[in-house]
Amino acid sequence: MTYIRDAAGVAGFIERWLREHVAEAGAVGIAVGLSGGIDSAVVAALARRAFGQDMAALVMPCHSDPSDEADARLVADALDIPCERVDLTAVYDALASELRKIGVLQGPALSNLKARLRMASLYAVAQARSLLVCGTSNRAEIATGYFTKFGDSAADLLPLADLLKGEVRAVAAHLGVPERIIRKAPTAGFWAGQTDEGEMGLTYDELDRYLATGDAAPEVRERIEARRRNSEHKRRPVPICVPEV
């Protein structure tokens, strides 16, 4: 695919970019959630190269598939990434129980609560250690709104936001991310059997091709553009009302 940029060049650029922005903020490194997926593995690996031990990679299980935590540990061990565990299961259960009392029973509202608890945890650690929170969303996820507003989208830096999924895979291979993680089906881990591509009804290859070239089957194009239209509020700054009276 000719639209996939050179992995070594992209990785080196992002490392320099991270150092510049962290220094500009007067911080010492970054905090990132390590989910067991490829995007967070790449961000954590780049942070390790850029900042050494001045980083925090948090594994934050919350009714999660145990294999996801095992994969996160695999990444941390393979790439010598300092990794800590914050179990959010009990916190989630307590908050979800209170919300159910007022009628919030199931569905995306409770699933997205997991992402927002992880965001709050990352910011708590980052503030205490003079770190910046690094998000892991890639270009395809941002373009389609496939992220939790004020959850995984809440970050100080988004180093992968201009990278197609194929470019993330290429950078992962360049950085030595374990092959199991590169080949793993992307998932937000919100419920058993959930995958990104299954939930979106689109493959990342279709998304990459359309975003890079504008080329797609008519039904794929319409599905992508519909997701883009319906999620526009997620990408815009919060509107501020300025009364003209």
Rank of each mutant, 00 (worst) to 15 (best):
S97L: 13
S97F: 12
E98R: 15
L99D: 14
L99P: 01
R100D: 04
K101Q: 15
K101L: 12
I102V: 15
G103D: 10
L105F: 00
Q106T: 12
Q106G: 08
P108V: 10
P108F: 00
L110N: 07
L110H: 04
L110Y: 05
L110V: 05
S111K: 14
S111M: 11
N112P: 05
A115C: 09
R118A: 05
M119V: 06
A120H: 08
S121I: 00
L122C: 04
Y123K: 11
V125T: 10
V125S: 07
A126H: 10
Q127D: 14
R129Y: 08
R129H: 12
S130F: 05
S130G: 01
L131C: 03
V133Q: 04
C134Q: 09
T136C: 08
S137Q: 13
R139A: 14
R139D: 02
A140S: 15
I142N: 02
I142A: 08
G145F: 01
F147V: 12
F147A: 12
F150A: 12
G151F: 13
G151Q: 12
G151H: 12
D152Y: 03
S153R: 14
A154E: 09
L157F: 10
L158M: 15
P159S: 04
D162Q: 13
D162C: 10
K165F: 06
G166E: 01
E167L: 10
A170G: 13
V171C: 10
H174V: 02
L175K: 06
G176V: 11
P178C: 12
P178I: 09
E179N: 06
E179Q: 13
E179D: 15
R183D: 14
A185C: 03
T187F: 04
T187V: 03
F190P: 04
F190R: 15
A192R: 14
A192P: 11
G193Q: 09
G193V: 06
Q194W: 13
T195K: 07
T195Q: 09
G198V: 01
G198W: 04
G198K: 00
E199Q: 05
E199V: 08
G201S: 07
G201T: 05
L202M: 04
L202P: 01
Y204D: 00
Y204T: 00
Y204F: 09
Y204K: 03
D205G: 00
E206I: 01
D208A: 00
A212H: 04
A212T: 00
G214M: 11
A216K: 06
A216M: 05
A217N: 14
P218G: 09
P218V: 09
V220H: 08
V220I: 15
E222N: 03
E222H: 06
E225N: 12
E225V: 11
A226K: 13
